[in-house]
Design a protein around this nucleic acid. Structure first.
Lengths: 250, 250
DNA sequence: CGATATTTGTCCGTATGTATA
DNA sequence: GTATACATACGGACAAATATC
């Protein structure tokens, strides 16, 4: 992370972004990439102000934003510390990726890495309640928030019902919107199976975390209002940055 | 795992358990200790019958039991295969350790490894809604089922309300019973936070799994019928053998 | 224990650009 | 165009909490 003097960062034209927002984003990326490890103290506000070439108040605005996101904890007289978990995602019946992040004050998006068709394996067929060997759409996706990769996932949709899924998701960046375009106005999560897994180097690289760090694997089935399965997903969450919260309030 | 001829396993007196049950337990232990890895095929029923010196029908009875527990999957014409996950535990509002296991057809028990008193840290005080630095009972426990270690946990109880907790749990082997003895007839789980963690060698040894394998850490708060926190627990589940199931049916 | 330095929290004021009525 | 409100950014001063010796 290099210091960006604000005088050189005077953007022209359409997308002017504030200094504090840019600084918050830079710090979030530094935290996500491990420059500042969980539990570690960030440089003092005075020091950061010098590094970024801005007033201390501007740094404070950025840190306040990171604090609201849960990335850091600020303690008077002591310093600003990187929180152990950047994001706490709620796992519930009506879990939505975007909504989940916006509740945490984050801007998130989902990206399609790959898409293909394949035959349903035993586990997939059982979860989606389709015949063994029937055709499925397989999409590999990446979930990000504030430049941090939170999860990668494999998602399976029954064909031909969701034939336009790939294009819809690529266009909108949202699975909820793509479902709505396929005539599914609403959907709920039937169940989630959670396990801890080590992943291979390729997945670890996608998650931007070392290969010797664990992931949370969540296998879930989403169903439409009639109770028919519409999606079977296997999602690997970055174990270093994500904690899942299960609320038991009925 | 060594073959135990049933002729030598003829118990006398009170606790006579059946051959099939003993064989099922032996096989479960073998699977838990890694003699038979997940996905691997067990010896044929004929072969197992010879090893244990019993009739094939007795082996079939044992395998059927393991199948109900989710430990193995029996496929006609192919063989018996070790399932990837030995135990699937349900995480819900009314989660009880014993009940959880008995639903899976397992005999489980909880064991007190250590007990002491300490001052509440910030996180503990917040979870239990007590003053920072107030006295807590800390119990370290081990959860087993069918000779397999499923989890180790640190549990914190506010004092002096639960002063007799250690003795009660040691006597009954059940936290639910110990709570009832302290005038808490019922309790519910308020929330659970789930993360993936690597653990140090000591905890890994307690879980009987290699140090480079991940665990599922569940932090939970139990409350009494009045909504007052009565227990804060951090439970490490053996990631290789346990999968958590979250049901979203209201 | 006290003295001192460091760090964050809060308040004052000033100035500029942007969006809105 | 003008007036107003708002967000952003800078500079300084002091208080409060913490760390260190």
């Amino acid at each position: 992370m290099t210091a960006v003097p604000p005088s050189t960062a005077l953007q022209s034209g359409a997308e002017r972004i504030s200094f504090w927002s840019q600084i918050a984003s830079d710090l979030a990326q530094a935290i996500g990439s491990g420059v500042y490890a969980p539990g570690q103290r960030l440089p003092s506000e005075h020091s950061l102000a010098q590094q970024f070439g801005v007033n201390r108040h501007t740094i404070r605005r950025a840190l306040a934003s990171l604090g609201l996101q849960g990335l850091v904890r600020v303690t008077q007289g002591s310093g600003t510390y990187v929180e152990d978990f950047a994001v706490e995602l709620v796992l519930g019946k009506r879990t939505r990726h975007q909504q989940n992040l916006s509740q945490a004050g984050l801007r998130g998006r989902m990206q399609v890495l790959d898409a293909s068709t394949q035959r349903a394996t035993r586990a997939q067929a059982k979860a989606l309640e389709v015949a063994l060997g029937s055709t499925l759409l397989r999409m590999q996706m990446l979930g990000e928030a504030e430049r941090q990769v939170l999860h990668v996932s494999e998602r399976y949709f029954p064909l031909p019902r969701f034939a336009q899924m790939e294009q819809m998701v690529r266009d909108s960046g949202s699975i909820t919107v793509a479902f709505q375009a396929h005539g599914v106005p609403d959907y709920t999560r039937r169940e989630s199976r959670i396990s801890a897994e080590m992943v291979d180097a390729a997945v670890a690289a996608q998650l931007r975390q070392p290969a010797n760090r664990p992931t949370l694997l969540v296998e879930s089935v989403n169903v439409d209002p009639q109770g028919r399965p519409i999606e079977f997903a296997r999602t690997w969450f970055a174990g270093d940055r994500v904690r899942l919260m299960v609320s038991h309030h009925d």
